[in-house]
Design a protein around this nucleic acid. Structure first.
Lengths: 211, 211, 211, 211
DNA sequence: GCTTAATCGAGACGGTACGTCGCGTCTTGCA
DNA sequence: TGCAAGACGCGACGTACCGTCTCGATTAAGC
């Protein structure tokens, strides 16, 4: 149901090598400096092409950086290993791989800044990048819940946000590496935080306590 | 033995009302639009002054926004309530108050973007903003640990990053409110994640398993 | 062997209508006010374009004003009329036309001021504007000299500077019009000053007199 | 009839050394660079004082430069030597001394530029600087005329403007020195140009000729 | 000896212009 | 139609100077 599918694209075909060159240039510039320290012109120069050729492919820097830095095909679900901890480790590792690379660390802030003013763009990120990530981790928790490993009162979304937040915060805000040790520790914390055994929820007094 | 301590400040003194006006203008502009959607000129205009008067006070937008948005005197430690959960709730609430305000949500991304290229600036943020926050939350966990409530193998830093990350991630990345319910849930997760009772650490096989 | 001769000019060509608009805007602003009362920004605004488009064409205000005000193709020599007085009148009239126009009167001072600090610019004026003017008038005198009309001891350069100086001084310094009557009178003075008949040079005593 | 003559000036008296320092600083800056290359701030700095102290004494740069560069007491008339040539030489030398000094050469252009927009200032220059100069030279010619040395049809003003123009033009426009030789030559030209003997005015045909 | 008043230094103030940079678009010639 | 090149209108950048002001300290003269 492609509306404007170009049945037979007329005119000179796009030079696909430019696509690659632009993406790589973007990544390199991100590694070398901050998101806001370069612009479309610098990207085009680095890629050995022109601004126009870049704009023909991506309408703005945010979407270009998104393409350059993040693996959209990330949605490769985690296989059912029958073990929440192992599955979460795999998911956490994937997250760390994605957000820990230097280009991503440099990109996140600027992307966030550009997002703030552009609702459409924000949606792209939420549904295209964050959403799948959430679903994937959420699925792990729900699967474990169906196996009875998760406390019924635990909120999967909260677990997801704690896990993802910890990784993103550590890599992008603190600039620290999300190494194996850290990932294990945070996964461990989350697993224990949601696991079923001996869960004793806060009393009502605590829950609705003063303030 | 302050070298450049202005014993008797010479020349016309700064107009302190300008400081306030600029900070408020900055906050308002952040609420109305994105970090990157306005510049020093717009701030000066809104504050009813000139760019120069702004630059006299803050050398760049990042430091100005930092001053405008974040309460530096945040380091007011959480009192010892004898209850980790209650203390963490207070800390989480403070965090949510700080990062949940509209201006902060709009600022975080741009700030992060500018930080990436400026090591000195990054240090200011880390030691002046994030550091105290960490220490505060870390102190709560350590206090609980000394009361025997925390599992000896649990890493306080990880708990801190999970708690902080979850809140920042939710407010700034997802744009969702960090309401009371969410805060309670994430505190609950962290408390259970580090608490001493019935902790069963991963086996060595799990820990060093094939990843 | 032009090195940077643009064999085939590449890229989008300059919009020639902007050149004209900028030159006219400059002239108009000079007529309306002083050289120093407006800047490149005002010129661009008046021309309906941008500063950048102006800077692309002229590196500074002095060179732009030079182009706007003075006819560079002034070097159209005066034809040999066989009569020094008539030829000098034509030359004087050309000078008065050039320096008497309102824009020129307003420009001269500022130009001179900017020149003082820029040797390169000063050369442009000397060789491009003053030089041809001199050669033209000098040629008239020399032609007359070859006809025997000029005293052999008379210095053509001095005659040139007296004629030119009188006109420039009157129009630009005194703000008086260099009308037909004045021009006739000053040409008459110069002609008589250099003519051969009954010249009685100063005695040595006069020439090397006290002080 | 001094209206606001401060009978007894109360308050702290002006530091007269500042007057001198400012005038000298102005002269030095003019020698080192162009009129437009420095401002009141630079003058104050160089004089080791503040802008305000300068503005207290002179309302703008043009008047300050005028004071700094030109000897207002120039009106010392030329004594009657009974010889036009000798008297004109003395006057020419005085003119050359005044306008030939480096500071004056650098000042003239900028002064002219500032004058253009300020009628009051222009009057100051005309009546205070140029006027006396004219009167002085004009008086010489008229004196000679009364002795019968000058042709009755010769216009003294034209002679004045030719003499003055030649000197100013040579020093300020061409940047050449008005040395003894040049002054003698231009005086000679003017003397011959106005002298009574063998003057044969242009015929009517020439005077009202075509064009 | 105290008040009064103008000056001094220093530097902030609201303005305006500077010359440069980057944006996103457009207009050429060539492939 | 794509591409390289570069001009276009637009707007922000950080700086510099303008002429004025507001400070505390200084320096006479008059009371």
């Amino acid at each position: 149901m492609e509306v404007d599918a170009p049945g037979t694209p007329i005119g000179r075909p796009r030079d696909t090598s430019i696509d690659a060159a632009v993406l790589e240039a973007t990544r390199n510039l991100l590694i070398e400096g901050a998101y806001s320290s370069f612009g479309m012109g610098a990207i085009a120069d680095r890629a050995g092409t022109t601004r126009q050729a870049v704009y023909r492919r991506w309408p703005n820097k945010a979407l270009l950086v998104l393409d350059a830095v993040f693996t959209h095909t990330v949605a490769t679900g985690i296989p059912d290993l029958g073990d929440m901890r192992a599955e979460l480790r795999a998911a956490a590792q994937a997250l760390a791989d994605e957000f820990g690379q230097p280009a991503a660390r440099a990109a996140v802030g600027g992307l966030l800044a550009d997002l703030a003013g552009d609702a459409a763009l924000h949606d792209v990120v939420r549904t295209g990048l964050l959403g799948p990530e959430h679903d994937r981790v959420g699925a792990i928790v729900e699967r474990a819940r169906s196996r009875g490993e998760v406390d019924p009162t635990a909120d999967a979304d909260v677990a997801v946000q704690a896990l993802g937040g910890a990784i993103v915060y550590r890599t992008c805000f603190l600039g620290l590496p999300a190494d194996r040790e850290f990932l294990d520790a945070v996964v461990d914390l989350v697993v224990r935080g949601v696991s079923a055994d001996h869960r004793h929820p806060p009393t009502d007094a605590e829950r609705k306590g003063p303030r």
